[in-house]
Design a protein around this nucleic acid. Sequence first.
RNA 1: GGACCCGUGGUGUAGCGGCCCAACAUGCCAGCCUGUCACGCUGGAGAUCGCCGGUUCGAAUCCGGUCGGGUCCGCCA
Length: 650
Amino acid sequence: MATGLTTTAGARAERLAQAAEQNDYDTFAMSDSTPSFATPYRTHTCGELRASDSGVPARLAGWVHRRRDHGQLIFLDLRDRYGITQVIVDATQAPLAHAAASRLRNEFVVSVSGTVALRLEGTGNARLATGAIELRASEVEILAEAKTPPFYINEPDAPIDEALRLRYRYLDIRREPMLRRLLLRSRLVQAIREIHHEHGFVEIETPNLIRSTPEGARDFIVPSRLKPGTVYALPQSPQQLKQLLMVGGLDRYFQIARCYRDEDLRGDRQPEFTQLDLEMSFVDEAAVIGFVEDVAIRVMAAVVPDRPLLQVPFPRLTFAEAIERFGSDKPDLRFGMELVDLAPALTDPSGDPGSGFRVFDEALAGGGRVGAIVAPGLATASRSQTDELAELARGYGAKGLVWLAVEADGSIRSSIAKFLGPERTASVVARTGATPGDLVLVIADRPEVTADILGRLRSELGSRLGLADPNVFAYCWITQFPMYKWDKQNRRWDATHNPFSGVRPEDVDLLTTTSGDLARTAPDDPAGRARALQYDLALNGWELGGGSIRINQHDLLARSFALQGQTAAGMAEKFGAVLDAFEYGAPPHGGIALGIDRWAALLSDQTNIREVMAFPKTQSGSDLMLDAPSEPEPGQYAELGLRYVGPTRT
RNA sequence: GGACCCGUGGUGUAGCGGCCCAACAUGCCAGCCUGUCACGCUGGAGAUCGCCGGUUCGAAUCCGGUCGGGUCCGCCA
């Protein structure tokens, strides 16, 4: 196959190195081509001129980054998105230009004509790419005056209230950190587009006004004027549409797709966000994973060529293994601190039943799990610090938190030492591998709850203790997700990912119930053990995205849907188009969707996707710049046949 | 839906019952300055401390509410 889908790890690594060499991106450069930026306002950009240009006449346009007025001599730092060039205006050489320069203030927009000249001996500025030269001004034209900005444009490190930055986002974007991140994001998307086109993918736009599709999240809805009383929904993802494109024979589709979900926001969640959405026909799981891994490696080479990848090819963990070892389906592999199952250490070697600590014994007797993580260096934690950790654990749903501190001299301080006795206390500590100075944190609960809480503690402590190398990128694949999770409220199975996700061939026979009737589900059904052809890609503890090989056979789909409590009528209601389409020859297909915002944020070392979005919304969903959302214009409700009745209680 | 944190000249902070008609830095304005690059020097203006209410002889400071922003839980691929 010439698509790179079957490349070996070695070839992939080689290509990575090669790509890294070829991509020598300057901070401000947008691509490796160098288009001309000359216009009537400028002959060059502010990042372009070098010593070799000295003597040539030039005209630059940009914003006044800073002005240094020495009386007869005025220095201007002229800025555009390509860089900064020093302009010098000499009253004795160009009196008119000097008069204009005297009027200038920060952020005025000017166009300056003059001659490129080497700077005087010893006055070069090594911090500027253009620092060897300056533009000796003959004419200074003010293109636009500017009010004093509400915050510093010219100090990249200045802390500024984010609300203020959002209100004046167009000014924030002038600042170097935002500019750099938006350029990085542009390169990210560019690299994605390039590799997809190289591999024969077709870029297709899908509509934003669609029918509500049950994806799990709340839809944004748009009332229809032409059909009063009905609504469109904004897509939570193009999921069904891309599957229909596969039925349409497109074979390889991708899109940089805007998606919408009306749920509460977080640092890594905005109401509208962007996905790399792709779907391929006639592929298996390995083919999709292999291609997407190539995309990711290519992206790294194009965007962050000198940042190390922890492991290539990316490690692949099964869901069960990820939960077992890290308590998370998106583990941060940059540090260890793996979960330890304490059960074997809790049995008294003398054959005495139980651990001596009732909480542990009850958990184990009920099929639960007693697990631990080791926090390096935290043995000196004070009582109030361990209390704080216990409070944290309770916030994650823990009933309590047991800790054992291994003191510098090897002795063990613990609230439950007296229950366990010295022998079992020692064996517990030995099992965790904790060494003097470490703090062992123990949770006892149902297995999945224990894993979840320890996973969250691991993640939080990893960040507090700075265990992860911030320079490294650690990708990993999580595979073999369970097909379903038990929905307690509705007493039925619920797709963990996507109702169309395929089942692993060896687990097809598990798609049954103990009752024998697919409509009468119970939590101990074999279906609960069925694993899906589903995969997630995680990066540094963040879920970048996930996908699956879809079910393309009607009877299997019907079976899977029945387990999810869907009646034939309900299916037709919700998925009519896809089900119809599948009657006309649906190829085997699968794909993935990756969060572009999260990806760009991680590659920019940001913990917040707002930092890589030009115009993001606040946590309460407002756009502080446009002041959205706003009340409709008079008549808009009437036109739609709507009336506002005020907030309703749900 | 819930928990917690923040809101003081343009900006970032200090002040946390009276010493505050509020301090510092920076920015802004004016003047001076021919080699600066966070230029420098001199002088000046600028805040009823998010808003409303309460406690108190007295509130930036304490309490309640509210608005705005953030972090997290729930929610959400």
